[in-house]
Structure formats: C-alpha cells, structure tokens
C-alpha cells in the first residue's frame, strides 16, 4: 500500500494567475460562533501582504482557513485562480501552500534534520532541502542533530522558516513570526522574508509588530472583529490608527 494511494490528486498551481491566493467573502465558525463574517483578501502573485489587527481580530483563523486546516462555512478559497474550497490541509501543503503557524512551527521532539525532512512531502529532494536550509541559516547546520525543542525561541522560528523556504512554495503564509522574539531577531527573520519575496515568492504575513512588517509589505490588510476594516497599499496605512487599535484610544 503506497502512502499516496489514499490521496486525491493535489491541485496543480498555475503561477501565471494574477492572484495567487484569494479568500472571497469567507465565513468561518467554531461550532455555532461565527468568527469570520465574510472577509475578502487577495494576495497578488509575487507580492507581500501584511495582515494586521489587534488580538482576537480573526487573523489566525484566516490563516487556518487559507491553509485548509479549518473549513469555511461560506465563501470560497482560491489558489492561483483555482477553486480549492474544502480541500484539506495535507493536499494544499503538497500543492505548495506553505504555512508557518503561530507560536511553534517546529516539532520539538524531532531533530533539526528530521524537522527539515518533513518538508519533503512537497516533492523537493531531501538533500536539496537540507543544503538550502543550512546555507540560509548556518546556525542550524551546527546543531543539526539537536532536538528542536531545546533550541531558543529565535532558533526555533529560524528552523520553521528554513523548513518553509526550502519547499519552494507557491505561497508562504507566516503567522505571528515575531511572537515572543527579541526585535533584533525579528529584524533578521524579516530580512529573509524580504529576500524570498525578491525571488518572486508570494507571502501573506500576519503580524502584531506592525512596524517590522510594513517595511517589507507591498499591501496591508487591517482586520478587527472578524471583518476587514481597511486594505490598501502598505505605504498608505496610518500608524496612529494602528496605535489606537492596539493600545486603546486616548
């Protein structure tokens, strides 16, 4: 019994489509509580989109929906112009939708090498993954046989990024990359995001640290209460608006 025999054929991604990821009027609910009330977000091919908003705005839910972990209760999800509503996380991941979830994007009880090996489900050669990752983050190469759980927070996030980047993703989704990390490390991570974006990979990045991501992003979307409040070019976003959303109005 081969492992892929149970799988439906992964959707093929057409990277020539102008929009690589689109959520159209998406609704999502936990049981009877609807938390996304019809949001529309588009990620143009080759661009970096920042998804901002205070705690509990529905950002993480949006990522869960876009990665296929959570079903939508209304609306549609498109990858590269193809309707993938209802397709599971495993299939989307194999089709090149790469997600680094919030908090720990690593398997703490696997070694660094084994963590990287998990990326091979996308079809990339094992050795290639390792070489790419270790070239990008030499620090990981030094500790290749160490358990990921013993790494520092920054190193863990590095590993998660390394795993994601080495899969040659169609779209990369990063959720709260900076959570619990020192600003200096966050800066380094975003340099990598900028680098991969320069290579033409489309990125959707969820952030609380608005400033760090706005330097990299082309577009910004601000969410609150499960709806999209504002969206437009990243340069046009008013920082005072963000400050008051986060810390409460004066």
């Amino acid at each position: 019994m081969s492992e892929s025999s149970t799988a439906s054929p992964p959707p093929t991604a057409d990277t020539t489509s102008p929009t690589i990821l689109a959520l159209r009027d998406v609704r999502a609910a936990y049981g009877s509580i609807e938390v996304l009330h019809g949001i529309t977000i588009e990620v143009p091919t080759g661009s970096v989109v920042a998804l901002l908003g205070p705690n509990g705005a529905g950002k993480t839910t949006t990522i869960s929906v876009a990665s296929g972990l959570m079903p939508v209760t209304g609306g549609a999800l498109e990858i590269a112009g193809q309707d993938v509503t209802g397709v599971g996380a495993t299939e989307l991941a194999r089709a090149g939708v790469c997600t680094v979830p919030e908090g720990r994007g690593v398997f703490p009880n696997l070694t660094i090498t084994e963590n990287l090996l998990m990326a091979s489900y996308t079809g990339v050669e094992r050795n290639e993954i390792r070489d790419l990752a270790f070239a990008r983050f030499p620090r990981l190469a030094e500790r290749r046989d160490q358990l990921a759980g013993t790494l520092s927070g920054g190193e863990q996030q590095m590993l998660a990024m390394a795993r994601a980047l080495s899969t040659d993703p169609v779209i990369l989704m990063l959720d709260e990359l900076s959570m619990g990390l020192a600003p200096k490390i966050v800066g380094q991570l975003y340099e990598q995001v900028a680098a991969i974006a320069a290579d033409g990979v489309s990125v959707l990045v969820v952030e609380q640290f608005a400033r760090s991501v706005l330097g990299v992003a082309d577009h910004a979307v601000v969410m609150a209460h499960g709806t999209v409040q504002w969206s437009g070019a990243a340069n046009d976003l008013d920082e005072d608006l963000l400050t008051s959303t986060y810390l409460g109005g004066p």
Partner: peptide, 15 residues
C-alpha cells in the same frame, strides 16, 4: 506607561 516609548515599541515593533 501609555506614553512610554518602549511600551509602544513592544506592541508595534521597532521603528
């Protein structure tokens, strides 16, 4: 605390 620059930085990230 509200006016403290480090607090704003903690919430919004370094400029």
């Amino acid at each position: 605390v509200r006016a403290h620059p480090m607090v704003i930085e903690a919430y919004l990230g370094a400029a």
